[in-house]
Computed example of a mutant assay.
Amino acid sequence: MLKTVLLQASGSGGGMQSMILFGGVALVFYFFMIRPQQKKQKDQKKFIQEIKRGDQVVTIGGIHGKVLSADDDNVVLEIDKGVKITILKSSISLEASKPPVKEEKKEDKK
């Protein structure tokens, strides 16, 4: 009878360990997957709202152009002299439109 009580008591501890492990996996998933994606979406939305005349942008399709005008939903791009296209603001890529980050080269002194 004593063995039965001990076996039942030790079995309930495994359930608690499983819950802690599941909670840990959920936290890791949140901080490495969900949170960065939310930040990226927030940055994209802010970028699209701040588009103004004269900005150089790249569309999701890879078209490079200069913003001539922008309203709530649409942007008019000049892709060459006299060639204008109207696109949706949502089709402008934040990743491709950002200027490249230049890394400073450090010279090794000998």
Rank of each mutant, 00 (worst) to 15 (best):
I20C: 03
F47V: 03
Y30F: 12
M33K: 09
Y30E: 08
Q37L: 11
A26H: 04
F47K: 03
V28Q: 03
Q44C: 04
Q44W: 03
G24R: 06
Q41I: 13
K39P: 01
K40E: 12
L21C: 09
K39M: 10
I48R: 15
G23F: 09
I20F: 02
F32S: 13
A26V: 14
Q41K: 12
A26N: 06
S18G: 15
F22I: 03
Q38R: 13
K42S: 14
Q38F: 03
F31L: 09
Q44G: 01
S18F: 11
F32C: 07
Q44H: 07
Q37R: 11
V25M: 10
S18E: 11
Q38N: 08
F31G: 08
Q41E: 15
K40V: 10
K40A: 14
Q38S: 06
I34G: 00
D43G: 02
R35I: 05
F47Y: 11
V28F: 00
D43V: 10
Q38V: 15
R35Y: 11
V28A: 05
K42G: 01
I20H: 07
R35L: 13
Q41V: 06
P36W: 08
G24C: 13
K40I: 13
K40L: 14
F29K: 04
L21V: 08
F47N: 00
Q37V: 10
G23P: 00
Q37T: 11
K42L: 08
I34Y: 01
K45W: 02
K46C: 06
K46V: 13
F31D: 06
L21R: 14
L27S: 07
Q37I: 13
P36F: 09
P36I: 00
G23N: 07
L27C: 09
Y30D: 04
Q44I: 13
V25R: 05
Q41W: 05
L27K: 02
M19D: 08
M33H: 07
G23A: 15
Q41D: 14
S18C: 04
I34M: 03
R35K: 15
I48C: 03
F32T: 15
K45E: 15
V28E: 03
Q44A: 13
K46Q: 10
Q37A: 13
P36S: 00
K46Y: 01
I48Q: 11
